[in-house]
């Protein structure tokens, strides 16, 4: 399928400084989902990853673990999330990605899940515990049928041969994990990783890349943008949502701080 997915449109129209923001649906409050998405777009964010909370998020650090626990206590579920997203496309134009773990998706029903994604206007999926081989054998055909781009991860330890396999299986972008770690590691985008970023740049992959994990401020964002089309911020944003001011104000201050130098 060669549909012009919103993700592809974004990467065609913007080649650098793409800012992607992750948040956990149902946090801080159950019904904040639409407001967070709309406010992020309004403040110039290019792409949004909507986290589907899971009880056992092994690839996540404490901040996203905590937001997931709170979201589940608030009553968030995939079913609820699709309800909240029913009319999101009336107000939001930027690409939307759902991110989460496999088990809740399996229980929801994989095909039903894909169908719902298409209905509400989801463009892609990030499922960290769906490995490449299982994706290709059991999920790819279904995802493609519903126009969903599966976003796969690479790390500094991923071999060149595997990076090429992942590039081959990808059709949106590649999620380049800055260093092997769980999410929310502190200020990890340092010189140490330049070698890895440059090595991957030289592979001339067909897919663009966004760098994630450890991006928390303007400096780390700007540094990551030197080596890829842009960067992804998760834990730092989720943490910023804790403040005691209005949700819109929290989001706008945060995005400003990332995009503009101090």
């Amino acid at each position: 399928m060669s549909t012009q997915n919103r993700i592809n449109q974004l990467f065609q129209s913007k080649k650098d400084n793409i800012l992607s923001v992750y948040f956990t649906a149902g946090y801080p409050n159950l019904d904040d989902t639409a407001t967070i998405i709309q406010t992020l777009e309004k403040n110039g964010v290019d792409l949004i990853e909507i986290g589907m909370p899971f009880s056992d998020p092994v690839a996540d650090g404490p901040v996203i673990q905590n937001s997931s626990t709170v979201a589940l206590k608030n009553g968030m579920s995939i079913k609820k999330l699709f309800q909240q997203l029913t009319s999101i496309r009336q107000s939001v134009k930027i690409p939307l990605i759902l991110m989460g773990y496999l088990n809740p998706v399996i229980q929801f029903g994989v095909e039903e899940f894909c169908k719902k994604c298409k209905e509400v206007g989801i463009d892609g999926l990030i499922l960290p515990d769906l490995p490449l081989s299982v994706y290709e054998e059991e999920y790819q055909a279904l995802f493609e049928q519903y126009g969903l781009h599966n976003v796969l991860l690479i790390t500094p330890q991923t071999s060149e041969a595997r990076i090429r396999q992942i590039d081959e299986a990808s059709n949106g972008f590649i999620y380049m994990v800055s260093s092997s770690s769980t999410t929310g590691a502190k200020d990890k985008v340092s010189d140490f990783h330049q070698e890895y970023f440059e090595r991957v740049n030289q592979l001339e992959l067909k897919n663009p890349r966004l760098i994630g994990f450890g991006i928390s401020n303007h400096e780390t964002f700007a540094n990551a943008c030197k080596y890829a089309s842009g960067a992804i911020i998760g834990s730092a944003f989720v943490k910023a949502l804790e403040q005691e001011i209005s949700l819109e104000e929290r989001i706008s201050r945060f995005v400003n701080r990332i995009v503009n130098p101090v």
Binding site: V58, A59, L102, P128, D129, L130, P131, L132, V134, L152, L153, I154, T155, Q157, T158, S159, R162, V177, S180, S181
Partner: peptide
């Protein structure tokens, strides 16, 4: 069974 691992555990 299988190995439903995040990419970080792959190597």
């Amino acid at each position: 069974g299988g190995a439903y691992i995040p990419e970080m555990m792959h190597p």
